[in-house]
């Protein structure tokens, strides 16, 4: 199969999955009604209009944007660090965001202040996690300025992540059960909280992050041969490094702010793209990864809201249940590291 055929297959599958995602849930809406609504007719029941327009479409669009952003960030990280286990969160962004939300939701009891007690405020959570993510990014920027070696940068990122997690653990230990539950729910990821307004902001962030990537495709291809070769071919390595940090920061920071830390997509999907498209060329790999990211996250979201369940499952439970076996299978494949 040529790449073109594969892309067409993915697109067809995408349309099908999207419709399936819109139709399934605690209330099943038939495909036919969805297509008729698309053609201009109205739904036979008024409640369906609200379910689809105000809830399911924003949620599916969130899944699409998050699928693109996380998997593209993962691919950038894996190529930049030449490490198959790198993912969008290796620079500590999710831990930073988690720390922000943890302080918002749990620090009240721990320190005896009242920040936002009572009802969990959605926008406050977004601001807190953005602040945490930006804080970690600024620290990583300072580290990147000082440290020139990319492996060291990777380790510093992991250390920042661990440090943030330890603070979160302490906060959890001293917090009240209710607050802990609120934080735990946030950390399970949620695609369903984004309304149309939030979607506007999220898509802006994704657009900026992706535009940066678009202008560095050639540099990422050169990076396949490693840092020294890329430099010898005239690639501005310093610039690429800043593009990588800013782009993944905006993409994953934005997604984590609105949806919480969504696990595994970022690591697993780029491998899936290499496996299916059998290429290392980023001109193919970036669109392929984006498409597969959408497919996987839409599929996971569809599974999470299958009819028969009263409520939908947490998205991270589903992505991990599918992501982990995929990673294990990939690593067990004999030529995995050669093909990377």
């Amino acid at each position: 199969m040529t790449h073109r055929v594969k892309f067409i297959c993915c697109l067809v599958l995408l349309v099908f999955l999207w419709l399936l995602n819109l139709s399934l849930g605690s209330i099943a809406i038939p495909f036919v009604s969805l297509l008729e609504r698309l053609g201009g007719a109205s739904f036979p029941r008024e409640s369906w209009e609200i379910i689809v327009m105000d809830y399911r479409i924003p949620k599916s669009l969130t899944a699409i944007l998050a699928g693109i952003g996380l998997s593209i960030s993962g691919l950038q990280m894996q190529t930049f660090f030449r490490n198959p286990l790198a993912g969008p969160f290796v620079l500590g962004i999710s831990s930073g965001a988690g720390l922000g939300v943890a302080i918002l939701s749990m620090a009240g009891t721990a320190f005896g202040w009242q920040i936002l007690s009572g009802t969990p405020n959605y926008w406050a959570a977004i601001v807190a996690s953005s602040a945490g993510a930006i804080g970690v990014l600024v620290l990583m920027g300072l580290a990147a300025w000082k440290v020139k070696d990319s492996m060291t940068l990777l380790i510093v990122g992991l250390m920042f992540g661990s440090a943030a997690s330890s603070v979160v653990t302490l906060l959890s230990y001293f917090s009240a059960a209710e607050e802990l539950k609120m934080f735990t729910l946030w950390s399970m990821g949620n695609l369903g909280n984004t309304g149309w307004n939030e979607l506007g902001i999220l898509s802006g962030a994704i657009f900026i992050g992706l535009s940066l990537v678009l202008f560095s495709i050639k540099s990422y291809n050169a990076m396949l041969l490693g840092e020294a070769y890329a430099k010898s071919m005239g690639i501005n390595f310093e610039r690429l490094r800043w593009i990588m940090i800013v782009s993944t920061g905006i993409l994953t920071g934005g997604i984590t702010a609105f949806c919480g830390p969504i696990a595994f997509i970022g690591i697993a999907v780029p491998h899936l793209a290499r496996l299916l498209f059998k290429t290392n060329d980023h001109r193919i790999l970036f669109p392929a990864t984006a498409l597969l990211g959408i497919l996987v996250l839409l599929a996971c979201d569809t599974i999470a809201q299958l009819p028969g369940f009263a409520t939908s499952l947490p998205i991270n439970a589903v992505t991990t249940a599918f992501g982990a076996p995929l990673i294990i299978w990939l690593i067990m494949k004999r030529n995995f590291s050669e093909a990377f």
Binding site: K218, L224, G226, F340
Partner: peptide
């Protein structure tokens, strides 16, 4: 070099990097 999925021609073509446009 790892990148085992790259073909010989793709590798050689990468050598043109300093001469090509922004998309390679």
């Amino acid at each position: 070099i790892r990148s085992g999925l790259m073909t010989v021609r793709e590798l050689v073509a990468l050598g043109r990097t300093p001469h090509t446009g922004w998309l390679g």
